[in-house]
Design a protein around this nucleic acid. Structure first.
Length: 525
RNA sequence: GUCCCCAUCGUCUAGAGGCCUAGGACACCAGGUUUUCAUCCUGGCGACACCGGUUCGAAUCCGGUUGGGGACGCCA
């Protein structure tokens, strides 16, 4: 069977880094297996879903090169199918409407199936007993069972669960007398609205069963049925709930593998029953671990930099973000880290995804961005940095050839595009000064005299070249008793206002005689 | 509170019983190259959460403890 996966975000504005990582893993999985990567927008929340939000989503995906197959699937357009599915479950007895007291119409509730004898996803784990708080009555109705259990310390805690969890339930009072047997009553309970209320119960004895599935990433995952509750699938107002919509759409889109965040694990246990009730095969599941922030905590609204759009505006390269994100929770198994898209597709398998959460590391992303930056085609690099310069308003009087030379000089020193703003001294005489460094490096008389020497000789020399620049700097150093090379940094401060940059001889040559002299003049006593 | 999941350097990870005195990358520190800056190169720092068990042998398997996270909606 051909692989079909989907990325199913709800378009509510920003696209989160964790979300897009899920998309990347789905994409990688699909491309690796030669399958289809589908996009579904879960836009049933009318309040929050906007076209603008969908546009941002599409932009982010496009930016990262996450191309999808087939048409975008809009969940809201499939609503009638969802309701139809619910009605079918209602008429089959797989779902029910509870008795409601108020004037609001009753929702449709899906029942965790009572009969699971031939269900491959359910297994019997053994006999179980629970101590019950006799002070609280046990209530049993078609919508479940409600009671107060006593924990090891004898503390009472209220619980409610689906009937399905309590196969062969026998309830005893404090004296050990059997007061209730579920198998005798179950037919009636399921059919009628009447509730049974039992007082002074002390013990439950029942057969415990659990839903189980094999997660491609996490391995076997199971949950006891007695800890599950029936779930609302259609609201009182007639609109379908996420669980129903999600499952119906997966059926509709013929999804074979559901790859999503592991905050959905608990939902999966219920979705399995929904697939079965609808009469369709349960897809394979793979639950991705979370990405946490640099404090090791889940991302919250406060983490302003957790949105894909932010990384884009901060100037990270999409290739770098894509590469970095694919390495968060996954590795190829060898020492490779910087990998092309093709290599990633080739190497990606869900089995190699880790099952523990991963912390986002800006340092590493920055380093990776620098690597991609360094190997970028110089022409493209110039083009992109030119555009940044444009936003700074530098380009009107700037020669493109000159700019290209500057870009070439600076490329290996760049991590992010906005760093272009530090290049200002190449184009204007007004630029930012690192005052602290200026005071430290240009304070002493020796340096000033040396700079004066360089200034005078560079103004009178025949040719302003790399060689002559270097020559006079060396001479200035030896004449003023400065260690060789030690004049470079003061000179850099004088010419650029910064302590880092390209080679200082190259920088001076690039600036040209006029600008160089003009800047040195300020420091010549 | 109940249920589920997770646990290797500060961080991302390799590791499927002996190849492990635990490998790589980022970060950090030191040295080298560049007479300067950035790259780059070399080296250093640095981890199997804890306690038991299984085994000739455990980071790896099992149990418990601790710590972390998730889920418990007529949100998605």
């Amino acid at each position: 069977m051909d692989i079909r996966v989907r990325f199913a975000p709800s378009p509510t504005g920003h696209v989160h880094i964790g979300n897009i990582r899920t998309a990347i893993f789905n994409w990688l999985f699909a491309r690796h297996g030669g399958g289809k990567f589908l996009l579904r927008v879960e836009d049933t929340d009318k309040e929050r879903s906007t076209q603008a939000a969908i546009d941002t989503l599409l932009e982010c995906m496009d930016w990262l090169g996450l191309d999808y197959d087939e048409e975008i699937f809009h969940q809201s357009r499939n609503a009638s199918a969802h309701v139809k599915a619910a009605e079918k479950m209602l008429s089959n007895g797989q779902a029910y409407r509870p008795k409601v007291s108020g004037p609001e119409p009753a929702p449709v509730i899906f029942r965790i199936p009572w009969d699971t004898d031939n269900n491959p996803s359910v297994r019997i784990t053994g006999d179980a007993e629970i101590r019950i708080d006799p002070a609280m009555p046990v209530k049993i109705s078609k919508s479940g069972i409600q009671f107060s259990a006593l924990n090891e310390k004898g503390k009472s805690a209220e619980r409610s669960a689906s009937l399905a969890g309590y196969h062969r339930l026998k309830i005893f009072d404090a004296s050990g007398t059997l007061v209730f047997e579920i198998e005798r009553e179950i037919e009636n309970i399921l059919k009628n609205d009447a509730a049974i209320e039992l007082a002074n119960c002390a013990k439950f004895a029942f057969q415990r069963r659990e839903v189980v599935f094999k997660d491609i990433i996490k391995g076997e995952l199971a949950k006891p049925l007695d800890t599950m509750k029936d779930l609302v699938i259609v609201r009182g107002d007639g609109t379908p709930v996420f669980h129903l919509a999600n499952v119906c759409d997966d059926i509709e889109q013929k999804i074979t593998h559901v790859i999503r965040g592991d905050d959905h694990v608990e939902n999966t246990y219920r979705h399995i029953f929904l697939f079965q009730a609808a009469g369709f095969p349960v897809p394979q599941y793979g639950h991705l671990p979370m990405i946490v922030n640099q404090a090791g905590k889940p991302y919250s609204k406060r983490d302003g930099d957790a949105y894909v759009g932010d990384f884009r505006s901060k100037g990270y390269l999409p290739e770098a973000l894509f590469n970095y994100l694919s390495l968060l929770g996954w590795s190829p198994g060898d020492d490779r880290e910087k990998m092309s898209r093709e290599e990633l597709v080739e190497a990606f398998t869900l089995e190699r995804v880790k099952s523990s959460s991963a912390q986002f590391d800006m340092n590493k992303l920055g380093n990776m961005s620098g690597q991609y930056m360094a190997e970028m085609d110089p022409g493209i690099f110039t083009e992109k940095t030119w555009r940044v310069a444009e936003t700074q308003g530098w380009t009107s009087g700037t020669d493109r050839v000159y700019f290209a030379k500057v870009a070439k000089l600076m490329q290996s020193r760049m991590k992010l595009f906005p760093q272009v703003s530090t290049w200002k001294y190449f184009f204007f005489d007004e630029f930012e000064n690192d005052e602290k460094a200026r005071i430290k490096l240009l304070a002493d008389r020796k340096s000033m005299d040396a700079i004066k020497y360089v200034f005078e000789n560079l103004s009178s020399c025949a040719e302003f070249t790399l060689d002559s620049i270097q020559k006079y700097i060396r001479e200035a150093e030896s004449l003023n008793g400065i260690q060789e090379g030690k004049l470079n940094q003061p000179l850099r401060i004088a010419l650029t206002g910064q302590t880092t940059g390209a080679g200082i001889y190259e920088t001076a040559e690039m600036l040209g005689r006029e600008k160089t002299l003009k800047r040195l003049k300020n420091f010549s006593p």
